[in-house]
Design a protein around this nucleic acid. Structure first.
Lengths: 245, 245
DNA sequence: GTATTATTGTAACACTTTGTAACAATAGAA
DNA sequence: TTCTATTGTTACAAAGTGTTACAATAATAC
């Protein structure tokens, strides 16, 4: 057997503090989330990480999400900190360390209690090439209604993320971040419907969007189908709320 | 000189983790906040504290706010975690420790970086008897536009708290928590105006509140003044959102 | 008693927003 | 040329909002 590796040095990180990220993408039909699968354990979890001793919390999360998605410039929003004393069972983490051939003694700190600051991210589905982290061998998109059983309180974290996303959708024009630069009114409506989980009235939706003075109309898009071609739109950049301000 | 005391034992608490509370009260005219003044330092700060190693985060905050206000059953809501690497300057904390005659070596951990989870509380102004904590000799109500200069990023924390309170005011019927059990329509309107910082239309406010089906009308209140007596109202308990769920 | 004053509850009106259905325009296929 | 699916826009009713007006009324002054 090879010597056990050390990967996460205790002295580099703030102890007992972690972050988790709920990374939303929209594939044209459904709202999806990136989920990690840990090597040989059958354990699924949200992408997360730890905060270096001299690193801003926001930066740590930004870096973590960048590494998983390959994207810079990501819409990221902190939504809640989870601090129940018993939110983590150390057993699964122990399994993960063992399966990765890591030295248990020097990674003991990972089995202790963690307070986790949770963020959600909105990304353009088409641009992402998901990449597993050091401890996992799989990362994949899962629809909200087809999630695997998740570690710890990650199911709760996702539910809270979705709740916050719904509350902020219109106020912060979050639709932008889930769509390509230019999109049709129908595509925009489908994003809204995927997030709300309910159909919206086509006419009313169009009227509200147009009257909100947040869209710029561009050329039509000819899809090759036998019907009237829709206009393309983009969001007025000055109307879109920036992340983390 | 007496031997230096030890008050906060490092081993009892989660390191690098704190909480701060923005405790709102309404005195009938203005929205106010509880601010601590540290002994002989001229330093002002939000009431806060640390989390014991086996204690739920929410519980730690609840206990902290209970100690400052003397109230149980407080409306508390977590709204943001502040994790900038440089949010704290260790000097003021050093001063506070010295002025309290505390042993610097054993309290060294208090001078390190802290991530702070911020909560706001809404309380019935009349019922509170504010009590300073161990390190401070003063605690007082300050109107939002008359705050003293505050330590660290506490001014930012207050602004964010107010922003969140405004966003949640109607959706979560937060007005209840700042008023006595029974109140007049005018008093309710004054709470809203204090939070929004802007006057509201009397007739429209009344109509909206009554049509929202969230108020119960009780007997009139005769104030002894020469005009029509207003009805008293209370919120329908089943309509009021509970804290922390 | 009666008049007076300040405040409250409610109605009235215009105006805006929203829900819903309808209709004309149009890109491609038959 | 006709047909089909989808889109942009209009029309109309219903609901909601901003504003003004007015009647009701609790205490005081006379």
């Amino acid at each position: 057997m090879t010597a056990k590796k050390q990967l996460l040095h205790k002295e580099d990180f703030i102890p007992h503090l972690a972050f988790d990220s709920v990374i939303f993408g929209f594939n044209g039909k459904k709202l999806k989330i990136l989920i990690l699968e840990y090597r040989n354990t059958g354990l699924f979890a949200l992408p997360g990480g730890f905060v270096r001793r001299d690193e801003n919390l926001d930066e740590a999360v930004k870096n973590g999400v960048m590494e998983r998605t390959g994207l810079t410039d990501i819409y990221l929003e902190q939504f809640q900190t989870f601090g129940e004393a018993n939110r983590a069972d150390p057993e699964p983490m122990k399994q993960i360390l063992e399966m990765n051939g890591l030295d248990l003694a020097s990674h003991q700190w990972l089995l202790e209690r963690f307070i986790s600051v949770a963020y959600y991210a909105l990304i353009n589905f088409e641009k992402v090439v998901p990449k597993p982290d050091h401890l996992s061998d799989g990362i994949d998109w899962y629809a909200l209604d087809e999630l695997p059983p998740l570690m710890m309180d990650h199911q709760t974290i996702i539910e809270k993320a979705l709740e916050t996303l719904r509350e902020n959708l219109e106020r912060k024009l979050l639709g932008t971040n889930l769509l390509p630069e230019k999109f049709t009114m129908k595509e925009l409506q489908e994003v809204y419907e995927a997030i709300y989980g309910a159909p919206l009235n086509r006419s009313g939706f169009q009227r509200k969007m147009l009257s909100s003075n947040t869209l710029v109309r561009h050329e039509k898009r000819f899809s090759g189908n036998a019907h009237k071609a829709p206009y393309l739109y983009s969001f007025r950049p000055d109307k879109v709320m920036q992340p983390m301000d």
